[in-house]
Amino acid sequence: MRNLLANREKRFNLAVTVALFLMSLLFVLPLYWTAVFATRTLSEVFQFPPPIWFGSSMLDNYARIEAVFPPFRPIINSIIVAVPKTIGLVLVSALAGYGFARYVRAPGRGFLLGATFATLFFPPSLALIPFFLQMGWLGWLNTFWPLIVPAVASGFGVIWMYTYIGSTIPRELYEAAEMDGAKGFATFFFVVLPIIRPGLAALAVWTVIGTWNEFQLPLVVLGDGTLFTVPLALTTLSTTHYTDTPAVMLSTLMGLVPVFLLFALLSRQFIAGLTSGAVKS
């Protein structure tokens, strides 16, 4: 009887595993097909049954993209935006988070922290139109500045860093640093920053991926096609050359590769960032 039950359980578990595996294939299938189509000719893509393995036409497809626009330009544009923004955002957030976490008795601290927290509830669309006008007055439309400079101040990043520093750095450490004569900024750079590296990495990974995928803001502030970041350039290409499926798929694939590489290298930080709040709940 016991054996029979155990057997039934095993069979159920096996069925679940197989079903889940098939489900996971379904989730990856669009990405896989993107890669397959990117290596096929136009006529192969429209065959039935559709190709399920890679072809040999990738270079031809690449040549056709190159005839329309430099395929690496959007990728370089996205890097130009993502790198300075991420470095700035991580540093500014960590510094402010450190201030909030360390100087708990400073007048106005509670108000500032509460206000920063409250702004997290403001939908980005609330500021979209005035932000656009403001960028116009500054002469920043059609440049990368609107995507970099304002984005460095992220209420979200500050709250994250405040929480992270508060829970990883014991207060005794500040006192010890003070005894040794270290000023506030020196403590930040030489004591705090090295300790919170995992938190910085998690925030950085999320910032890069969020920036890479950002669509609405670049759409509003960038008018010039040569400045388009990856999602914008691909959207434009897929609209103007929608009949050339392999070329669209190949350029899409190229835009995805950097993010997937980053994920492959730093998936641990990515997931750590994801569950940092949920685990405690």
């Binding site: 957030s93 360390r102 400073a106 702004t119 005035p130 506030g184």
Partner: peptide, 24 residues
């Protein structure tokens, strides 16, 4: 200490007020 606090949050709030609070 208070001065150190304001100095550490200043870069954030300068940019934040200019580009996030003002537009709202």
């Amino acid at each position: 200490r208070n001065r150190a606090f304001y100095a550490s949050v200043a870069p954030f709030f300068a940019i934040f007020v200019a580009f996030s609070i003002f537009p709202v």
